[in-house]
Design a protein around this nucleic acid. Structure first.
Length: 268
DNA sequence: AAGATGTGCAACCGCGGGAGA
DNA sequence: TTCTCCCGCGGTTGCACATCT
């Protein structure tokens, strides 16, 4: 019977967001909080689909987002996590405060992948290519696989954890075992103290859990932040510089007229 | 200087899962 | 139990900017 489209395609704008749209979305969410994305565009006066609003918010407008390239340690963490979790970017992102799954995914595809390839490491299996070649020689069925198929190799994890890349090997992984394996995998990771200590040595809170909005009617004033008009400027400043680059005191220093930068047109 | 090519990132698409009726 | 709605995820696309020739 087919799924209903997430939004009425007619009259729904697509493509890059304008500063004006950003302002409307930020304004709405700061006033009302996040609820029912489907209703957001209508209530906020945006000609966008709810999905697009959610994406824009989570990937770009959220005030807790860091901007800029991943640091070396963040990058290493992404590699470590990817080796164990595979392409579960949201899970990986959850461990990198201020980073979004989209950002990490992009960074992986544009930077880390190349880096690993250069080092002779398969970015999918995280194994050196020469090791794989040796393995292939002993397993004739793996012969003649195109490079992209190397992810079909299921390499045993040194910790006994099944390499989760297996679920990338096909759009229909073995249903019976995969969900169990996945949960076991996650449990193993979470319960492995040494691993967790290694990975989260500088334990940081989960982004999604730690970041909260004032409920409807509240504003940031009780945190010493400016009123909405100022908050908007603050938010947009934070997008540009990364909120974590500043101490909280910086909020008092934000110039109201930075809002004017909004009028400079599209950010992209 | 100008066109071609490469790169990076924001945004879109389609699917699956969870919740509720 | 089944159906519908909504959210979130991962893969992919398209465009703007950078670099090369």
């Amino acid at each position: 019977m087919g799924r209903q489209p997430c939004c009425d395609k007619l009259g729904v704008k697509k493509g890059p967001w304008t500063a004006e749209e950003d302002k409307k979305l930020i304004n709405f969410i700061l006033t009302n909080g996040q609820c029912c994305w489907r209703a957001v565009p209508k209530l906020a006066g945006l000609r966008r689909c709810g999905k697009s609003c959610r994406l824009r918010w989570t990937n770009y407008l959220r005030p807790d987002l860091k901007r800029g390239l991943l640091t070396e340690s963040e990058e290493q963490l992404v590699i470590d996590l990817h080796a164990r979790l595979g392409n579960r970017w949201s899970k990986i992102a959850a461990r990198l405060p201020g980073r979004t799954d989209n950002e990490i995914k992009n960074h992986w595809n544009t930077h880390i992948k190349k880096k690993l390839l250069k080092m002779g490491i398969d970015p999918v299996t995280h194994e050196p290519f020469h090791k794989q070649a040796a393995a292939k020689e002993t397993s004739p069925r793996a012969d003649h696989l195109p490079e992209n198929d190397t992810h079909n190799l299921q390499l045993p994890d040194p910790d006994g954890i099944i390499n989760s890349d297996q679920d990338n090997s096909s759009s229909s992984p073995p249903e019976n075992s995969s969900s169990t394996d996945e949960s076991r995998l996650l449990d193993s990771i979470c319960n492995d103290d040494s691993l967790m200590n290694c990975l989260w040595g500088d334990e940081m809170p989960l982004v999604d859990a730690s970041w909260k909005f004032p409920s409807a009617g509240e504003n940031f004033n009780n945190t010493g932040l400016p009123s909405w008009d100022d908050s908007c400027a603050w938010l947009l400043d934070c997008q540009d510089f990364g909120i974590h680059d500043f101490g909280i005191d910086c909020f008092n220093d934000i110039e109201v007229n930075s809002l004017n930068t909004l009028e400079m047109g599209d950010k992209h």
